[in-house]
Write a protein that binds this DNA or RNA. Structure first.
Lengths: 192, 192
DNA sequence: ATGTAAAAATGACCGCGGTCAATAATAAAT
DNA sequence: ATTTATTATTGACCGCGGTCATTTTTACAT
């Protein structure tokens, strides 16, 4: 039978995560180097990869944690009554997702779980996010011809679209906030 | 003043592109290595990078060319009368975009031009694709409360969403074809 | 033909993510 | 306390994308 995980393991992992967080808060996500992290954590390079499958897995955890906290904030709010309120609620998350191009890329890569067995932190937040929006739409419906779940999927699709265009030189004349509001109005209140 | 571009340059670039195409047709996009390409092309590694900014730029060209040809096919069709017909028209492109996870990632990375000055081949195809769909929707309107351009943006958002879920273990029970049809019906024919 | 300046090609080298056989530390068995 | 089996750590090493000072080739002027 499998042994209990050692204290040492938890300590090392914590050291790695702390070091990574420190690097990121100083220089941002994109500038993170595994070598820098292990140097600060005081462990060998190989140790990093026995704790995280690869660099992306670390990013998945750190970025997922961040999004999860933003979802906590979102859940404290009451169900939005208008599209504008809904966009207001979503903006902090959108802002984080666009804080760095690299962050957005990581999020996209991990938004869908590669395998059912290991649903990563970011993929979890996408599930959770869809549930939250679905509940909103069931609670205070804007349109009733399709299910709240389908509506929520659409909201996510438009969020991604709005975010993508932030990084697109051709289409960044209007703000993501404005754009998302336009999209969601057309999606959730067709004909009005 | 700038000199005319040498024949040698064109030949070398063609050799590199041919070699890359050969590697891809044998082993797929993901397996392409720059070293393998320069080996087959019979040039030095540095030469590759004086012809392409980086590996991604090569992929941008090759994948962009492929999508462009699929758009040619799409444009030969008459304006779709139904959502099902529209989905039929789009499926070949969707299939290519999902042929490899790596291909999808490259497409996402290049879907928006980083700078107005250099709009890459893939970003061009996204513009072109939006125009085609917009024309369809202006020609045979499904809904009239919002502009064809906005509708086309939504179609693209839902295409990306449908494709993303192909690579997601949690959500690949239904085919991308079915999923896209559901999305587009809800988007283009709300309330029906 | 010869000189010359611009452009193209070269390949040794670097950065950095990731691997793996060897080693050390730990927990359980005697 | 000693042995043994399991787990954690190590760091030299590899793969591969990308750089750059140097060399070679080309186009043009004389």
């Amino acid at each position: 039978m499998a042994r209990a995980i050692q204290q040492r393991t938890l300590k090392t992992r914590a050291k790695l995560l702390d070091a990574a967080q420190a690097v990121i808060s100083e220089n941002g996500y994109d500038a993170l180097r595994v070598e820098e992290v292990v140097l600060r954590a005081g462990v060998a390079k190989g140790t990093f990869f026995s704790h995280f499958k690869d660099k992306d897995a670390l990013m998945d955890q750190l970025i997922g944690k961040e999004i999860d906290q933003l979802l906590d904030q979102i859940e404290t709010r009451s169900t939005p009554e208008t599209i504008a309120e809904m966009v207001d609620a979503l903006m902090p998350m959108m802002d984080f997702m666009t804080c760095e191009r690299y962050v957005f890329d990581v999020i996209l890569r991990h938004s869908g779980a590669a395998a059912n067995s290991d649903i990563g932190p970011i993929a979890m937040t996408f599930e959770r996010h869809a549930e939250v929006v679905s509940k909103w739409l069931a609670d205070k419906p804007f349109r009733t011809d399709i299910s709240p779940d389908l509506q929520a999927e659409g909201v996510q699709a438009f969020e991604i679209q709005a975010i993508s265009l932030v990084f697109c030189a051709l289409h960044n004349a209007i703000s993501p906030r404005e754009r998302l509001e336009t999209y969601l109005t057309a999606w959730l209140m067709p004909g009005r």
